[in-house]
Design a protein around this nucleic acid. Structure first.
Lengths: 248, 248
DNA sequence: CAGTGGTCTAGACCACCTA
DNA sequence: AGGTGGTCTAGACCACTGC
């Protein structure tokens, strides 16, 4: 029984990976259960062992399977949402959960980069940047104020885009072909000052989760830099971490 | 010139990976620079192209290289510390930076698991847990209070270990052969209440970064659960994230 | 001992990019 | 057209685990 489609251009190891993933998600393969061996899998789908092996390797890297040398390959017990430190699309996530989400553009300006931003984004002296201040509400409550800096050369006419209706990342990807890849985020606890308290309709002294996010393209060049102030009582940040092993 | 050691049992692709990594770290290979092609690398070290390719694959997964189909493989511009969402060993990191670090055991108790902890750690009814309350100081200032829960069956006699002198993760790995693998951490901003304020020598109302961390073994079974209260003005949490692509 | 995953070879064809 | 990475095959030997 080879349910692989050799006519399409989807690689066979991806097709096998997707089949196994479906079996995990549907519950046909249960946590802790051993899956077919690499050789059996190869035989079943009529491919080379290495091809079956790459399918498994993908699923191991994504945290769905565990290999144990000499024993076999097993379905990993799921953790939370089995996501593995991916940035979640905020709007999508919230809307998926059935919340109403609104983004307001408080201000959008084009200005010469101040020196701190200039070095953060590896800009030439005199280069211009966009500074966007946005506010997001979920279920008609203010949740977060975002202050974003972007190099103007990479996204000309940004201010003419629908910044309230579309996700910024989606605009960058679709309209400017900018493939965002990785981000560094730093988080700390702060107390609301009068500016932030006003913007989030909070008391001065309320807990605020303050975040700085630096995003890069796949070649590593910085593309965006965002400061965020989240209401501490309405937002928590979730992250998956891999424990660092003493490398050999 | 094949500087590979075929006598050792270290796989060749790991040796090649380490050579390339050294060249990146030493600056012999600079950011944005193209590295040798897979075929050239294979020829240089006298191995098959697939072997050279696995070395590269590792470095791509760890974020040091970028492959571009049809163009070549390039050194990625480094981000912060080029770590890729690994848990850093807190004590080691701080001591590496030259800070004095002290851990105090405020209390260590063995008790039947309350129902919330029981479900967090997937325990049988009636199973016992250790509860450790620890306080860490850096440069003679209180930084964080940690409240950790562990299944007693997995680490008997834990309370007799040197919990103030050794890292908990190191004890679990060395003395109990527990290989921690992944963690889920959630972070939020809070305000110090009187208990936490007292333990951290802060004012009531001071900003606190509150964290819940759930750690699992490589097969996914939960092993540890820790609540932490960090001084907001002295601690920020850094994380690397991968942007989620619209999968095909 | 048989079965598993871990590594490696020598080929092959393809898709993509630059020229 | 020539070089690059992306996929795949049919073998092979090894190291580890369990019985």
């Amino acid at each position: 029984m080879s349910s692989l489609d050799k006519s399409t251009h989807i690689p066979m190891y991806i097709q096998i990976k997707d089949i196994i993933l479906d079996e995990i998600r549907s519950g046909k393969l249960k946590p802790e259960q051993q899956i077919l061996s690499e050789s059996n899998l190869a035989e079943l789908y009529g491919v080379n062992r290495l091809t079956a092996r790459s399918a498994i390797t993908q699923l191991v890297n994504e945290g769905f399977l565990v290999r144990i040398h000499g024993r076999g390959t097993f379905v990993k017990r799921p953790i939370v949402e089995s996501s593995s430190s991916y940035i979640n699309n905020f709007l999508q996530d919230m809307m998926d959960k059935g919340y109403s989400v609104k983004t307001e553009l408080l201000s959008g300006t084009l200005l010469p980069a101040p020196s701190q931003i200039q070095s953060e984004l590896s800009l030439q002296p005199g280069e211009h940047i966009f500074c966007l201040r946005r506010r997001r509400s979920v279920n008609f409550e203010y949740l977060v104020v975002l202050e974003t800096y972007l190099p103007a050369t990479l996204c000309p006419d940004l201010l003419s885009k629908d910044l309230e209706g579309r996700s910024l990342y989606e605009i960058l990807r679709t309209d400017y072909k900018l493939e965002l890849d990785t981000a560094q985020e730093s988080l700390e606890a702060r107390i609301a000052d009068s500016l932030v308290a006003g913007e989030l309709s909070q008391e001065i002294g309320a807990p605020i989760l303050f975040s700085i996010r630096r995003t890069s393209l796949s070649n590593g060049s910085p593309i965006e830099f965002t400061n965020s102030w989240y209401r501490g009582d309405r937002y928590s940040f979730e992250v998956s971490l891999k424990i660092k092993q003493s490398t050999r």
